[in-house]
Simulated assay, not measured.
Amino acid sequence: MNDPSHRSPAADARHWRRNRRAALWLGACWLAISFAPLLLSRQLELPLFGAPLVFWICAQVVPLGFLLLVWRYERILDRLDRERAQGRVDG
């Protein structure tokens, strides 16, 4: 049953629907990580080592957040692909 020719079109559609849902959710997280420090920059005017706190957040924390998003996306897709290969894709 692991042969790709035995997969149903409905299972493929469910797999890609879950894939798109994960991508949209993580894309929304990406937007939040990108713009939250900039939108809160007035409240984050605290100086830290001669620069505003928002500068340090944008320079240090945001790239780590992006790495975590990429790692999470890879884990989600790996799980979805394994479930699809085993024929266990649920809606």
Rank of each mutant, 00 (worst) to 15 (best):
S8F: 10
H6D: 10
R88H: 07
R88M: 11
L39N: 06
R42A: 14
F49R: 02
S8I: 05
V70G: 10
A10T: 12
R21G: 02
Y73N: 10
R42D: 15
L38S: 08
P47A: 05
H15G: 02
P47M: 06
F66M: 14
S34F: 12
I33M: 10
P52T: 01
L68V: 12
W25P: 04
P52C: 03
R17V: 09
L69Y: 10
H6Y: 13
W56S: 01
L39I: 13
R17I: 01
Q86A: 14
F66K: 07
D90S: 12
A36W: 08
G87R: 00
R79W: 05
A59F: 09
R14E: 10
L68W: 08
R21M: 11
G91S: 10
R88Y: 05
R72H: 09
R21P: 01
P63T: 08
N19G: 08
P37E: 06
L31S: 11
S8H: 08
R42M: 14
S41P: 01
L46K: 09
W71D: 09
W71H: 10
A23G: 08
R7H: 13
A10W: 08
H15D: 07
L68K: 04
E74N: 09
V70Y: 11
R79S: 09
A51V: 07
G91A: 15
V61L: 15
C58Y: 05
V54L: 06
V89H: 03
R82S: 03
R18H: 05
Y73V: 02
L67Y: 13
R17H: 05
L80K: 00
W71Y: 11
D78Y: 06
P52E: 02
P52I: 05
N2G: 13
L46Q: 09
Q86R: 11
L48K: 01
L31C: 13
A13H: 07
R82V: 06
A10D: 13
I57Y: 02
R21E: 11
A51P: 00
A51C: 06
H15C: 06
G65D: 04
C29S: 09
H6S: 13
R82L: 10
A32K: 04
W25A: 15
W56G: 00
F66N: 04
L53W: 02
Q60M: 08
L38F: 09
C29T: 03
W56D: 04
Q86K: 07
Q60V: 13
A22V: 14
W25Y: 15
L67A: 15
L77W: 12
V89Y: 00
L24K: 05
R72Y: 02
A13Q: 07
A32N: 03
L44Y: 03
Q60I: 12
L53M: 09
C29P: 04
L38Q: 08
G87W: 05
R88F: 09
Q60L: 13
D78E: 09
W25V: 15
D3A: 06
R79L: 12
W25D: 07
L77N: 11
W16F: 12
L26K: 00
L40Y: 12
W71P: 01
G87Y: 04
S41H: 15
I57H: 00
R7G: 05
Q43W: 11
E45P: 00
E83C: 07
D90V: 13
R79D: 12
V70L: 15
R14I: 03
F55I: 04
L77D: 13
D90H: 08
A51D: 06
L46P: 03
S34I: 06
